[in-house]
Design a binder for these strands. Structure first.
Lengths: 196, 196
DNA sequence: TCAAATTTAGAACATTTGTTCTAAATTTGA
DNA sequence: TCAAATTTAGAACAAATGTTCTAAATTTGA
């Protein structure tokens, strides 16, 4: 592991654990026994560290979309997408907890995430249509409702972790389970066998 | 308006506009032509300002619950609760945008909000039962689903504003309208006249 | 009215932060 | 092998921050 990777690993760990508000480049450097001067040789500005970590996240989401293209689109695919995304949110939790502030601070991150989300939303709309075509979802969903459902999906995806921190503070797998269930509840009324 | 109120008004305005990250007690004082020393005479610590603003918010939510107790419980009541709550979120937007970090920084705020949310959730569960009893909602909703629906409700309530900042960035009334619609979509499948 | 209480401005402080600079140590590769 | 490129530690700096201190101005109320 080279110096840059060490810095990014340490930064992710500290930001996630203690919050962006309480961690400085000096803390990050100290936590891996590196001098502050050296850290700033590798990342001239603090925001370059944030950018690099966000790029990791964005790259993971890109990979997720390629995977799905070549996969069967059914309820299992939906569960897989949800699960994988939830785990990414959890891995880069400090980003999601501070997303609005980070986006204001580093506008290119906000724009990149906005673009990414638009692509993923389209992917989910297609997935829904497939599920309707296959007779898994009810076929009487107004298209405006489909878009609304996708929106709900993404609000939950991006902020389930924040909601958990504010309320139940479930740990690890327990938290994932609770919000996986929230997604199931969202889909429940759209399943065909509940229609009648 | 006394000095304390002036400070709180200015703080709310600046935090909302520029983000908690970029505003210090000096900025707040300067914005109302007050010395920093004087500001700290009225609020010894920065967090006392945040606490006072959060108390305003919590008080408004308390009032909202008393209102509902003496009101008719129907779809209009639900719309009223949603509308009023959305406007509170908008008024105290900096709190919701930084809720997790603020909660970590000032634990009593997190605890107070957790308690408040639990009470409001119970209120919504009662409201749902009323809507079922009155034949407005379908009567075949599993109780675990009711709780899940309430959870969705609160995730959207607390984070619609953050989601909007990250994506569409609708302004004012337009944003309220978009996410009012998201709530409607959430309820749509539970309305009785959509059951068949 | 006038002494006590309060509010106020502004200087002062210790700390922290992001960043830069310098010079030494280490690594690279021809 | 050894000169050039790189990485590194640590000092240094200016700016900002939260908070405190002091002394003056203002307000209060008996």
């Amino acid at each position: 592991m080279n110096a840059k990777e060490k810095i990014l690993n340490a930064a992710l760990l500290l930001y996630n654990e203690q919050g962006i508000r309480n961690i400085t480049t000096r803390h990050i450097a100290a936590s891996i026994g590196m001098s502050g001067g050296n850290l700033h040789y590798h990342f001239k500005h603090t925001e370059d560290i944030i950018k690099a970590l966000f790029n990791e996240l964005a790259l993971a989401y890109d990979g997720l979309m390629i995977d799905v293209h070549s996969a069967l689109l059914d309820l299992d695919a939906m569960a897989f997408l949800t699960e994988t995304s939830f785990k990414l949110v959890n891995k880069y939790r400090f980003i999601f907890i501070n997303f609005v502030e980070i986006g204001k601070w580093i506008p290119e991150i906000r724009e990149a995430y906005d673009q990414l989300t638009r692509k993923r939303e389209q992917q989910f709309l297609n997935l829904f249509d497939d599920l309707i075509a296959k007779g898994i979802f009810r076929d009487d969903i107004p298209s405006s409702n489909k878009q609304g459902l996708v929106k709900q999906f993404f609000i939950t995806n991006d902020f389930w972790l924040s909601h958990n921190e504010l309320t139940d503070q479930y740990q690890d797998e327990k938290a994932l389970k609770a919000y996986r269930n929230a997604i199931d509840v969202l889909l429940w009324p759209y399943l065909k066998h509940h229609q009648t």
